[in-house]
Amino acid sequence: MPKLSLITLFVVLSTVFSFGQASKSGFKVIAFYTSKNDQAHISFVHEANKWFPKIAQQYHFRYDSTSNWNNLNAEFLSQYQVVLFLDTRPELPEQRLAFQKYMENGGSWMGFHFSAFALSKSTYPQNWDWYHQTFLGSGEYASNTWRPTSAILKLENTKHPITKGLPKTFKAQPNEWYRWQNDLRKNQNINILLAIDSTSFPLGTGPKAHEIWHSGYYPVVWSNKNYKMVYVNMGHNDIDYEHKFDRSNKTLSYTFENEIQSKMIINSLLWLGKGK
Rank of each mutant, 00 (worst) to 15 (best):
Q39Y: 10
P125V: 10
D64E: 09
L77P: 14
A48P: 10
K168R: 13
K50S: 12
P207S: 12
Y33E: 09
N105R: 05
P167F: 10
R89K: 11
K28H: 15
E75V: 15
N258W: 11
L4T: 07
Q126K: 13
I190C: 04
V29P: 04
A172S: 14
G106F: 07
F44R: 06
M264N: 01
G107L: 01
M234S: 11
G275A: 07
G139V: 04
N70G: 01
L77A: 14
D246L: 14
S248M: 13
S35N: 15
Y33A: 10
K276R: 06
N189M: 04
A142G: 05
I196D: 00
F135R: 03
Y33M: 14
T163F: 05
K186R: 15
F201W: 04
K276N: 02
F44K: 06
R179V: 00
L9N: 10
A116R: 10
F52G: 03
G107A: 12
A209W: 03
E140K: 05
N182H: 10
S122I: 11
K36A: 06
S200Q: 05
L97K: 12
T255K: 07
Q100I: 09
L194R: 00
V29R: 06
A142E: 06
P174V: 07
Q81K: 15
I196P: 04
L272W: 11
K168M: 08
I152Q: 08
F52E: 09
L4G: 06
F85H: 00
W109E: 04
Y33T: 05
Q173T: 14
W180N: 00
K208N: 13
D38Q: 15
T123N: 12
I212L: 00
W130H: 03
